[in-house]
Design a protein around this nucleic acid. Structure first.
Lengths: 332, 332
DNA sequence: ATCCGGGCCGTGAACGTTAACGTGATGGTT
DNA sequence: AACCATCACGTTAACGTTCACGGCCCGGAT
């Protein structure tokens, strides 16, 4: 296989070809002024002609920026995240960023490792679905690198956050179940980490109702449902941490011969793409996941710009709560 | 917000602190020999102590490698890709690589743009689910950067490829449908691009059966099914390009008052995580998506090593066909 | 006539690392 | 005793870009 000699065309080549200096080429690219329109056009033309691409390494060395963002999430295989990621990718591309993704499995060690990787990798900012790291660790990270936390309350007022409105989302779900006549609710919690908005909202809306915690996965949902049903056989309605756990719960209920929603209603959270095509169609709380992703990027971009500008008394970072609505289908 | 003064600790700081030269520190890190075990330990200790992190930019400048891989796919929101991506991420991490992801929507322009981004970004290799770019373009890319093509036949013998065994997968699906007594099959093709393994295999196994093409999405499946049913109302079994299109087809059939599988069977491809929980549970072709992802990384790593080693008469690149099996559920 | 200022452009230096080569000490061979 | 590998380590240069300057030229004000 013929491997190209890999003769990189450098800024000096362009300068030579255009009959100007390196610096002028640099100015032409970065549009910082100090250059006449005519030479600018000429330089740009020769850049095009020689197919010159600036080296990210050399540039990063001077500027410390590589044009990449880090995206930290627990598990891309959980269908919730791809939908968000799509929004992140599109918005990032619109801003000229590439995105490097890290899975953590909500494991504190891996979350820390991922942040280190991203830090070392020269990214300009991080979007993080952190589930295990503590607030102080996030604040420390934010001192080193622009950060936006996702689906979690901000660890400090000065770090940006974008999140589904979990409080009203779960309240809506619980109220719906209550309105349906259910008197014995239960929750399948998947928050292995530190943030418990959904759990608290559930506890507030359904005082005394049992809560079982497990991993926020399909099998986790099954296991949690089995346990909850064993300890509280009278439960007739389940609110799950997310749709995946809800599906797992449906499996558990079926296994035990209970009809859904006849014997036990199930409500999820996320409104996955296939939620309407499940058996039964899943009642769930909807938040625009694509918008969540793109909003995260916008917020991060704001933080990055602010920090570049010298920070100072910049307008405070964003703290967005994305609307959550209940989508009633047949499962509950 | 207190932004760190950002005093980077460099290799010289470590050298000074350890009482050695830069080069010795470099040797201690990169383990290239030419260093005694004792000083190596000492240097490593001071690296730890000073929390020194080599600059990817400076290192990349010398070595031209950044420790990142590019992953190009059409749409991360399609549940097939996250499952693959998970395998890619895990294997990449095991090899010390980070992964930057690009969506292309199977659009030729975006596929080209993504490769440019990755090239410019200094990645060491690319894993690509290319659906629009031609073979020659892929070969050209491969000359510039180690490449492994996914779910597509290799554009040339010297470029590695890993793919589901689409030929036997679709043959299995068609034979199953035939064995069920269906005589009028149809296919919902989603291959907007250049590779038509599934279509050809279908045409070979069910000669003359109608094929309708559309985007490989949920709505694409619905639209394609509507069209196919209109033109061929006698069809009693549908083979879809992927599970997403299959679900879309089910929606279309239901809309038209047809039972699945009573009036029309539906078989998909991919065996998505939720395939068993759909209504009806989806009969589909299974390939281990996680393994696909990790195998892609292994293959790419092989190419990277070979090219580093000077290429020459290296053992030819991998061409793997991952086994495809039929999972019979209720939809067909 | 001189000065001044601004627009446009070039020159050295620096970013932090590794490759290539050089050097001194050690130990073994003739 | 002189020589030569070998080992462990240090020095120099180079990767390609941008920053901080400095210089030139021109028009207008003094």
């Amino acid at each position: 296989m013929e491997v190209e000699p890999s003769v990189r065309v450098t800024i000096d080549d362009v300068a030579r070809a255009a009959g100007v200096s390196r610096q002028t080429v640099s100015r032409a690219m970065n549009g910082k002024g100090e250059i006449s329109a005519s030479t600018r056009r000429r330089v740009l033309a020769t850049i095009e002609e020689l197919d010159y691409r600036p080296s990210v390494f050399a540039r990063g060395m001077r500027t410390q920026r590589a044009g990449t963002l880090g995206l930290i999430l627990s598990d891309i295989a959980n269908p919730f995240f791809p939908a968000v990621a799509r929004g992140v990718f599109d918005a990032a591309a619109a801003h000229g960023f590439s995105v490097v993704v890290h899975n953590t499995d909500a494991h504190a060690g891996r979350e820390a490792a991922a942040t280190r990787e991203i830090l070392d990798g020269g990214a300009e900012g991080v979007i993080g679905f952190f589930e295990a790291l503590g607030d102080d660790e996030l604040v420390a990270l934010h001192r080193r690198l622009p950060l936006v936390v996702a689906d979690r309350r901000a660890p400090a007022p000065d770090v940006a956050s974008v999140s589904s409105d979990f409080a009203t989302g779960t309240r809506l779900a619980v109220e719906h179940l209550l309105a349906q006549g259910h008197r014995h609710l239960g929750m399948l919690d998947g928050a292995v980490g530190v943030d418990h908005v959904r759990r608290h909202a559930f506890a507030a809306a359904a005082p005394g109702a049992p809560i079982v915690t497990g991993p926020p996965t399909l099998t986790g949902g099954t296991a949690a449902a089995v346990q909850l049903l064993r300890e509280h056989p009278d439960v007739t309605a389940l609110f799950a941490f997310n749709d995946l756990m809800a599906v797992g719960a449906v499996r558990a209920l079926r296994e035990q011969g209970r009809q859904v929603p006849g014997d036990c209603a199930v409500v999820g959270y996320d409104d996955l793409t296939l939620a309407a095509d499940l058996d039964p169609p899943l009642t769930t709380v909807h938040t625009d996941k694509y918008e969540l992703g793109s909003t995260l990027v916008e917020a991060l971009d704001g933080v990055i710009r602010a920090r570049r500008a010298g920070d100072g008394a910049a307008a405070g970072p964003e703290h967005r709560l994305l609307p959550a609505t209940l989508v009633v289908r047949r499962s509950g």
